[in-house]
């Protein structure tokens, strides 16, 4: 006798918990063949604001953690993802229709991306900052620090539902930012399964918050939110990106325009866009 499977309820990931959208709305997700997969939560403005509050609350702890600690946590995420490799492959195949080999390549690339960033946590400050030889009796040091709360629009192009998400959040997490990310609208399921990976990976609750739903509806609320320090529009279509950039001007939020980085690109500068350089001077004296 065949057994009836237990399908998963896809919810949001806010503050380390899995709430439904407060709006009660969902979006139906189907396979390319038109078969029903799931009702995915459709986040509202309130959900976005809750996510920002959670990110802000988590930021102090995450940015204050040692770089070594952040590196180990990111590496732990990679370990957990590796352990669920097959699950992600089948989920991506089911929801996007790609070949299993391609799905496997995407998931392994996401794992490797996490490992690459895990290795950067305790090297970034050394490469990006440094001692400044000022013309006077001063100790002078420039150090990069996390910008704060970063909003991210994950890319929605084919083959990036997981890798695009991971490529977006990993650079921001490396230096201690807390993030609110809007997952791929085309294929949101992998993002929410990735939230399960995060929640079992020692990532403190609230450091990563994942919303599913409409980018056009939710992104402007994040771009105009006074407690968001930076926004990555890599995954945003042109029109909504311009609207968000204009809104971000009101608070002088840092903006990463679409096209600055490829949707699945890992790069030193993608880490650097979410830091502030602080320069500390101290008088030298024998007195």
């Amino acid at each position: 006798m065949s057994r009836l499977a237990i399908p998963k309820t896809y919810k949001l990931f806010i503050g380390g918990k899995f709430p439904r959208s407060e709006s009660g709305r969902t979006t139906e997700v189907s396979s390319p063949a038109g078969e029903f997969i799931a009702n995915v939560a459709k986040a509202s403005r309130k959900d976005a604001r809750d996510a920002v509050v959670a990110a802000r609350a988590a930021w102090a702890g995450w940015s204050g953690a040692s770089a070594y600690n952040r590196g180990q946590v990111l590496y732990r995420v990679a370990e957990m993802l590796e352990g669920r490799l097959d699950q992600f492959v089948s989920e991506i195949v089911e929801s996007t229709g790609v070949k299993p080999a391609d799905a496997r390549a995407e998931v392994t690339a996401a794992i490797d991306c996490l490992v690459w960033h895990a290795g950067w946590t305790d090297k970034f400050a050394q490469v990006h900052g440094g001692a400044n030889p000022v013309a006077g009796p001063f100790f002078n040091l420039s150090v990069p620090e996390s910008t704060g709360v970063v909003a991210l629009i994950a890319p929605s192009v084919a083959g990036t539902s997981l890798l695009g998400l991971v490529s977006s959040i990993a650079p921001a997490l490396t230096t201690g930012n807390a993030v609110v990310v809007i997952a791929s609208e085309l294929a949101p399921c992998a993002a929410m399964t990735f939230a399960e990976v995060l929640s079992t990976s020692d990532v403190p609750g609230g450091v990563v918050n994942i919303l599913t739903g409409s980018v056009v509806e939710v992104a402007p609320w994040l771009a105009s939110h006074a407690d968001v320090n930076a926004i990555d529009l890599t995954g945003a279509a042109r029109e909504i990106a311009v609207e968000c950039e204009r809104a971000a001007a009101e608070t002088l939020m840092r903006v990463v325009r679409p096209g600055t980085f490829g949707p699945t690109e890992s790069a030193f500068n993608r880490i650097a866009v979410f830091v502030e350089t602080k320069t500390v001077w101290h008088t030298k004296s024998l007195a």
């Binding site: 030889p133 000022v134 001063f138 002088l252 840092r254 502030e276 320069t279 500390v280 001077w281 101290h282």
Partner: peptide
């Protein structure tokens, strides 16, 4: 702990071409 781009300790208003200068938050980017 200070959210500021330049911190002067036991001095103030020092400038040097080798030393990055600029702000956090609404002080610009």
């Amino acid at each position: 702990s200070l959210r500021a781009g330049v911190v002067w300790a036991n001095t103030f208003n020092q400038f040097d071409p080798t030393s990055p200068f600029g702000g956090y938050k609404e002080s610009g980017y």
